[in-house]
């Protein structure tokens, strides 16, 4: 907070020394944690983490049929192996790089390795982060759509729309998200997938039921935020719009919603930050998002401390980016 005239004047030295106290506290906590882990013989191995983000995998190219290697030539950055099969046909294999495991004239059986190359692949944590991002993004988009419709329905004079919106909001807000995810996955997903199977339509994967659960959950809160935003706009605005002959929908679209958006944004940002964090619950329905990926990484590496700190930091990166983006939007709207 900016120093105001309310408090007595304080010297610069006073201010700097309290900054120092803050930094010391921060360092003290970190040091205490480190010393505690030394006491119980925990060995920190931060160096194992990078491969969980990005690693090199060897990919082998195998023959599909039986035959002999007719020729090996190089083409740009790849080796080309021509295989003459026992049926008298020729097959062409491309091996990026130079790592060819066979020679001309070799007899090859199906499944034999012809060559190999290395490729950079996203590691466990990157995949988890990507899935968390994807799930959050879809849930935010669907949440906004549900919330907009719900918010408008909530203030509608039509009893069906109004009561439906109220029931939806109360049901969703009144039960734990964890239970809702279970209902989506173990009740609705089973039902829907069984029905789909009956009409031989491909099943829907767990991720989408997770997204549905999160979107419905967020939608209820967005509904209330949108309702509050619309109701915060002065009554005179809707009266002015309607007195010019606009329909209720036209007034909402051109006059009320653009103004409400500005007020809705800050609470909406808070809601979406919550949503990103809540997506960590999807691990329980076998969606390998960031938290689930972290747990798997720990199982593989036995280094829980590094993984959990990294996991928390990655969530922070996501939420902080979102928060910055919304602040940018707010500023842009304010200068409009």
């Amino acid at each position: 907070m900016q120093a105001s005239g309310i408090d007595r004047n304080r010297s610069k030295l006073n201010r700097y020394s309290w900054m120092g106290v803050y930094l010391l506290c921060l360092l003290g906590i970190m040091l205490a944690l480190y010393l505690a882990t030394i006491q119980i013989d925990y060995v920190w191995r931060w160096n194992i983490l990078p491969k969980y983000f990005y690693n090199q995998t060897q990919i082998t190219i195998t023959a599909k049929s039986e035959g002999t290697v007719a020729s090996i030539s190089t083409e740009k950055d790849a080796a080309v192996i021509i295989l003459k099969t026992t049926d008298g046909e020729t097959e062409k294999y491309k091996v990026p790089g130079t790592d060819v495991w066979v020679a001309e004239g070799d007899t090859i059986y199906p499944g034999d390795t012809l060559g190999a190359y290395k490729e950079w692949r996203a590691g466990l944590l990157t995949q988890g982060l990507y899935l968390t991002l994807k799930v959050s993004l879809y849930s935010i988009i669907f949440g906004i759509i549900i919330g907009m419709i719900g918010g408008v329905a909530r203030i509608s004079t039509n009893p069906a729309a109004k009561w439906a919106a109220m029931t939806y909001v109360e049901l969703i807000r009144g039960s734990p998200l964890l239970v809702q995810i279970f209902i989506w996955y173990f009740v609705l997903a089973t039902l829907i997938n069984e029905l789909l199977k009956k009409y031989s339509i491909p099943e829907i994967s767990a991720v989408w039921y997770g997204i549905a659960a999160l979107a419905c959950f967020t939608g209820a809160y967005v509904t209330e935020i949108v309702r509050a935003g619309i109701q915060s706009i002065h009554r005179g605005q809707i009266e002015a719009a309607r007195s010019l002959g606009m329909t209720g929908f036209q007034a909402l679209r051109h006059i009320i919603l653009p103004q409400a958006m500005r007020r809705i944004l800050p609470p909406l940002a808070g809601q979406f930050i919550s949503l990103i964090k809540d997506s960590s619950l999807l691990g329980i329905i076998a969606v390998r998002e960031l938290t689930k990926a972290t747990r798997e990484g720990i199982t593989a590496s036995l280094q829980p401390y590094e993984f959990w700190f990294t996991c928390a930091l990655l969530y922070l990166v996501l939420t902080f980016t979102l928060s910055m983006f919304v602040q940018y939007l707010e500023r842009r709207m304010a200068t409009q």
Partner: peptide, 19 residues
């Protein structure tokens, strides 16, 4: 809505659209 378009209204608090 059709009637209102034919009837202009001016309010005490102006009610211009601020955006």
């Amino acid at each position: 809505n059709k009637i209102r378009a034919e009837v202009g209204m001016v309010f005490q608090s102006f009610n211009l659209f601020p955006h």
